[in-house]
Computed example of a mutant assay.
Amino acid sequence: MRTYNTAILGATGAVGQEFINLIEERNFPFKNLKLLASKRSAGTKLMVKGKEYVVEEATDDSFKDVEIALFAGGSISKHFAPVAVKAGAVVIDNSSTFRMDPEVPLIVPEVNPEAIKDHKGIIANPNCSTIIMVMALKPLDNIAKMKRVVVSTYQAVSGGGKEAMEELEEQLRAIAEGTPIEPHILPGASMPKHYQIASNLIPQIDVFQDNLYTKEEMKMINETRKILSDDKLRVTATTVRVPVLRSHAESVNVEFDDAISVEEAKKALQAFPGVVVRDNPDEMEYPMPLFTSGKDDVEVGRIRLDESVEYGLNFWVCGDQIRKGAALNALQIAEYMIEHDMI
């Protein structure tokens, strides 16, 4: 098998670390590997497949001879993605920078792999919550055309990065010890006000827009339409941060143009790659973040008819947003391109 010169930008963060885990687990065919990060993290030593690598500071010269560049996300993508493409790399970017660019494919490999061929050097990885939701929406849309989607998310603190995870753990310890809590990360480190997340829910992820939706909510709305190539699909979202370390959950309501039964929905979902149906009310079996953390598949359960509309369905979906919602999805894009000789 041919091997590829590969770079990971943001190697020391939560998504970058997951890239490394997955490269090892999936035996990704890299030849030479560059681990890149900010100046602050340069010099960090990381093990990959038994070999020690030293993290380098990302510069404009970092992408020479790189064929596949996996970007973990962040504002640095805006500068370094074009630099990497100019050097000859295909960039798979986990930031929001290019997602809604009409020239950049927005890809979930199980859902719209045919769009990869239209790339011009950059391929965007969707928002983590969007990925988890469309994995469940696509098989349903295949059998009964969707016309409206209502989603409420229950998003783990790991979506806010390593610092947010550490803050939740610190706050839980403080509650147990009876010591004061001074929040400084959530709902966002750069925001003017911060709230305790332990024993709490925060109904704000990212900044508010002029329409009073948050940026995270608008990402889910706009990205879902783009991935499913359906500008007429009506989507509304409420995104909430919850005191869970890892794995997002979402309550989804879908209205269709035609009738769809619970049995048809379960069959379509179970047959879809990357989806597991965990739905057994008699045995109290349903998806939960605790049991989807560290897993590749998204799980769907609580599937039931919406009795308030003619053709509607409710379901609950959980998925590990660092794996399928970020690093795994990006790596699957690269694997698809390798398999189809697109690099």
Score class of each variant (00 low, 15 high):
Ser308Leu: 01
Lys267Asn: 12
Lys78Arg: 14
Val83Pro: 01
Val262Ala: 07
Lys324Gln: 14
Ser251Val: 13
Val151His: 01
Val83Asp: 06
Val149Pro: 02
Ile202Asp: 05
Gly160Arg: 07
Ala156Cys: 09
Ile122Pro: 03
Pro243Ala: 10
Lys45His: 11
Glu52Met: 15
Arg225Val: 09
Ile107Lys: 07
Ala84Leu: 10
Gly160Cys: 03
Lys117Gly: 15
Val240Cys: 11
Gly325Leu: 04
Tyr286Ile: 15
Ile197Asp: 07
Ile185Val: 15
Ala144Asn: 12
Arg304Asn: 14
Val150Asp: 15
Pro82Met: 08
Pro102Phe: 00
Pro126Val: 05
Ala42Gly: 10
Ser199His: 11
Ala334Trp: 03
Lys31Thr: 05
Ala326Gly: 15
Glu170Met: 10
Leu140His: 04
Val309Phe: 01
Val240Thr: 15
Gly294Leu: 03
Ser158Gln: 08
Glu310Met: 05
Asp230Ser: 10
Glu177Thr: 12
Val90Asn: 03
Ser152Thr: 11
Gly161Thr: 10
Asn5Pro: 03
Phe208Cys: 04
Asp65Trp: 01
Ile68Arg: 01
Pro180Gln: 10
Asp65Pro: 00
Lys145Arg: 11
Thr97Asp: 06
Ile123Thr: 08
Ala81Gly: 01
Ala11Pro: 00
Ser251Cys: 10
Glu285Tyr: 03
Gln155His: 15
Ser77Met: 03
Ile260Ser: 07
Glu223Leu: 13
Met218Arg: 14
Gly10Thr: 09
Leu245Ser: 13
